[in-house]
Write a protein that binds this DNA or RNA. Structure first.
Lengths: 228, 228
DNA sequence: CGGACTCGGAATGCATGCATCTTAACGGCC
DNA sequence: GGCCGTTAAGATGCATGCATTCCGAGTCCG
């Protein structure tokens, strides 16, 4: 709360951060497709800014594993293989399960109430089929819940892992219509937290993550193995 | 092995990476002290390069959590509080224990032999009191062992966490003379891997990490609380 | 007709320059 | 003597320009 006041109010966003968010959104919306190469100078020209902040934003994305530099061609949006998804899923399992359990120990009624509101948002977005709003609220929910564990690095790492996967299954999520089922799981998790039932909470988190993993399994595979 | 061949051979290091490594080394050697502010332009002048690559290297360090930008003053080497150390320690526990167990399942005799050699290096460095060589070999050992688990993201994350802590306890390690004890634990871990004793391996890893955490507990505190 | 070579276009990476902003020291005023 | 306003120095952040390097199309030769 106080953090929002001190950090978010008078922070003029640098061009670098604006470009960074914009590229991230482009990844989410599918405008930037995995495997394609994009040049910093071309992006800069399209955005009407210099190549310096664009370059720095791309380097940040490289550090986060979302892009990779190609020698003198540009930056390539890294496609996620099944093995990559397994890696992310495994790490999220290792971090989110204990993190959520720790968070449950420290959650106050006020925290739970705030999360209930976000969970309602998630269900509303799922009911409306608004995938963008769903992902945004879902991210805020898990970030808000995990943050209670008190380990900032853990939260940041999990969010970074989330950002690596959320980008590649958007349409699949919408097609399968599994948003509603996934949305309801959030309230179930909060119920377990409120009840102090750590066993049920752990199973809920595991189930939620498994859900995520199986839903985002890529149905199509236009790049056969061996192509690198 | 093959990775080294493909990656390290014909890679001309960019100025950015050179600066990055140099600043990291300066952090390890203590030339850059936590809490102090350093300007990219001053560093660029000292190194005889432009501020562009220095700036980009600093931004990378910011992303890694080693530095933080100060509005129009420069970049500050972030000091590690006890809570920060706890955060890193907790995450390493969550990631390294399962990761090492997975690695043990996949370790081949050749892998073990290579790691034995590194473990010998560690003991030699510990016996000679060469802290820099110790840390380097120690890092290679844990990276090499963890890498066998097959989860590249997990390895990278753990190494990043390592880099956040290794910088702040150098002299303490040397003073307490605990290098030898820590060095011997590596062979014990390999013994457990070779024996297929997962329970003993898990306990060895936990013990090793606890060792690390307690050794690096800051004995001195020249910045009393409330100073900021 | 197929393959190798050359040349042009383009992108990165770095250097340089400038506008804006913050901090800190200095001088004046109460 | 202490406090406040002013000013100047320095840093970031962005724009611009240039050298180097790589990919690919076109062309020439076998």
């Amino acid at each position: 709360m106080a953090q929002n006041l001190s950090a978010g109010s008078l922070k003029r966003t640098s061009l670098r951060d604006q470009v960074l968010d914009l590229v991230r959104q482009s990844l989410v919306s599918g405008e930037i497709r995995p495997g394609d190469i994009y040049s910093a100078s071309a992006l800069a020209a399209r955005l009407g800014v210099s190549s310096s902040p664009v370059r720095e934003a791309m380097l940040t994305l490289v550090n986060e594993g979302l892009m990779e530099p190609v020698r003198n061609r540009g930056y390539r949006a890294v496609p996620m293989s099944e093995h990559d998804l397994d890696e992310v899923f495994s790490m999220r399992l290792l971090l989110e399960v204990p993190g959520t359990l720790w968070a449950a120990e420290r959650a106050t009624p006020e925290d739970l109430a705030a999360l209930r509101a976000v969970a309602d948002e998630i269900e509303a977005a799922a009911g409306a089929g608004d995938v963008v709003a769903f992902l945004d609220a879902d991210r805020r929910f898990h970030a808000g819940l995990l943050r209670l564990c008190g380990n900032r690095r853990l939260v940041d790492t999990v969010l970074s892992l989330r950002d690596q996967t959320r980008l590649y299954g958007l349409d699949a999520l919408a097609r399968h219509g599994t948003l509603d089922a996934s949305a309801r799981e959030h309230h179930a998790m909060l119920d377990a937290v409120a009840a102090g039932d750590t066993g049920r909470l752990e199973e809920a988190v595991r189930h939620h993550l498994r859900h995520t993993r199986s839903d985002w399994a890529q149905p199509e595979d236009d790049a056969p193995s061996g192509k690198r």
